[in-house]
Design a protein around this nucleic acid. Structure first.
Lengths: 242, 242
DNA sequence: ACCGCGCAAAGTGTCAACAGTTTACACATT
DNA sequence: AATGTGTAAACTGTTGACACTTTGCGCGGT
C-alpha cells in the first residue's frame, strides 16, 4: 500500500469528472450546446476552470468547440458509429488474444463464473448490460496491456456509450451472446491467442451488425431530446441545457 | 470549392498547434517540465489561452499536469512503447484490410509508384522515413475509415514519433521492408482483405521487434537530451526549456 | 558537519473585468 | 408582405491581478 499518492485535485479535475459523468448519463444531451456562464454558475466555479475542463474533454473528442460560437457535446453520425465499431472490433480482438496469454487460470475461472451466474436469467434488461460489460471488462483488463485497456474503456467504448443506441436485447440475442461468450472462454482455456482473437472479433462483429441495423431509428432518437427543437428547414440540434 | 469554411481561429488553436509541433520536433523534449509564465511570454500570449491549450493536449495524453507542480511532456516507458506498438499493429492491419476493399485501382497504382520510385535508392536516411510514411499513410487513408485514420496518425503514430527511437535503418532492413511492401500491394491488388490484414500485421510486427530490441539504448537516448540533466541518485528529467 | 526550521522567491490555481464577436429583434425600405 | 439594415443584448475570447502552494536557501541549533 501507500503507492497511491494523495494529490489535492484542482477545480478543473472536479469539473472534468462532473462533465464526463453528465455526458455519459445524458444529463448533457449529445448535440446540445452548453453555455459557459450558466454551466459555471450551476457548478459553482468561475469560467476559467470550466473552460479548461472543456478544453480537456475537447482533446478527448467528447466536446467540440466552434470559435466565437460555443461548445457542444459530440453527436456521432451513423458513419462515425460504424467506423468506431470497426476499430472496437480489432481492439477487442487484440485484447482477447493477449488475454489468452496473460490471464491466470484463476482469472479465467472468475470469468466463467460471471457467465454461469448470469446464464440462468438471460435477457433481463439492465442486468444484461452490466453483465456483458463485466465480462468484456475482465478480458480487456486481462490483456495486460494498460494502454489498450484505457483506449477501449475511456475512448472507444466511452464514445459508443454516449451514443447509446438503446440496444434492445431480445431473448434470442442474449442466448447467442451467452453461447459466444462460452466459445471465448474455451479459446482462453486452450491458451489459443489466434482463436481467441478470431472468436472475439466474430462476437463483436455480430453486435456491430445488430447495432447498425437498429440505427434506422435515428430521427426518433433525435426527437426524444429534452428541448423541443423546432426544426426549421435545416436540422437544428437541441439548444442550451441547464 | 467554398466548402472550406474560413473560421477565425483563436489563440488557443494557434498555441495548440505550436505546442504540438514543438513536442513533435523535440523543441520541447520528452519529460521536460515547462513553465507557464516563460512559455506564455515566449509565445506572446497570456497564461489563459496557454493553459487552455495545455489542457487540450492533456486530453490527448501528450502533456501531463500535476496539481501545483507543473506540466511536463509525456515520456514513454519501454512498456508504453511496447503496448502502443501492439495497438498500432492491429489498427494498421485493420486499415490495410479495409484498404483492400476500398482503394481504387488508381490508388493502388499510385501506391505502387511510391514503391518503385524508391526501390532504387534504398536506405538513404531521411528519404527512407518519408517514403515509408508516405506508403503507410496512403493505405491508412485508403481504408476509408476517417476515424481510424485520425486515431492512427494523430494518436498512436504521433505518440510513437514523439518517442522517436532513432530507428537506425540498415540496408538489409530497408530491403526487407521493400519486399514486404510489395507483398502488401499484391494482397491489395488481389482484393484480399484477410491476406492484406495479415501481411500488414506481419510487417508492422517486424518493425515492432526491431524497435523494441533497439530500446536497450534508452539511457543513451536520455543522455542525448538538450539539458545536461545532472542526475543525482534518482533519475531527474530535463528541466525547463526555453 | 548535519539536521531542522522558517522565510522569501517562484510558480500554479482561480477569479473578475474588459474586449470583440455573434445573434436576435425591431425598424425602415421596396 | 418580404427583405435588408442597424442596434442592443448575450456570449465567447483574452487579459491581468490576487491567493495559495511548492521550492530553494540560509540561519540557528545540536
Amino acid at each position: 500500500m501507500l503507492n497511491n499518492k494523495v494529490r489535492a485535485h484542482s477545480l478543473v479535475d472536479s469539473v472534468t469528472e462532473r462533465l464526463e459523468a453528465a455526458i455519459l448519463s445524458g444529463e448533457l444531451a449529445a448535440g446540445s450546446k452548453l453555455s459557459e456562464l450558466q454551466l459555471a454558475m450551476s457548478l459553482g466555479v468561475s469560467r476559467g476552470p470550466l473552460r479548461e475542463a472543456i478544453r480537456r474533454l475537447e482533446g478527448r473528442k467528447l466536446l467540440e468547440r466552434t470559435t466565437n460560437i460555443g461548445v457542444r457535446v459530440v453527436a456521432l453520425s451513423r458513419k462515425d458509429v460504424s467506423e468506431i465499431l470497426q476499430v472496437q472490433e480489432v481492439l477487442q480482438g487484440l485484447a482477447c488474444g493477449l488475454a489468452a496469454k496473460h490471464m491466470s487460470d484463476a482469472d479465467i475461472d472468475a470469468l466463467e463464473q460471471v457467465l454461469t451466474r448470469y446464464k440462468h436469467k438471460p435477457g433481463k434488461g439492465e442486468d444484461y448490460d452490466s453483465w456483458d460489460l463485466d465480462f468484456h471488462t475482465r478480458i480487456i483488463v486481462g490483456s495486460g496491456n494498460e494502454r489498450l485497456s484505457k483506449m477501449l474503456t475511456e475512448e472507444v467504448n466511452f464514445l459508443l456509450k454516449v451514443h447509446r443506441s438503446v440496444a434492445v436485447t431480445t431473448r434470442e440475442t442474449a442466448l447467442r451472446v451467452v453461447e459466444e461468450h462460452k466459445q471465448i472462454i474455451a479459446a482462453l482455456r486452450r491458451r489459443d491467442p489466434v482463436a481467441a482473437e478470431a472468436v472475439m472479433r466474430e462476437h463483436i462483429s455480430h453486435a456491430r451488425i445488430e447495432s447498425l441495423s437498429a440505427e434506422f431509428a435515428d430521427d426518433v432518437t433525435e426527437a426524444k431530446k429534452k428541448t423541443p427543437a423546432k426544426k426549421s428547414g435545416r436540422v437544428r440540434a437541441a439548444k442550451s441545457v441547464r
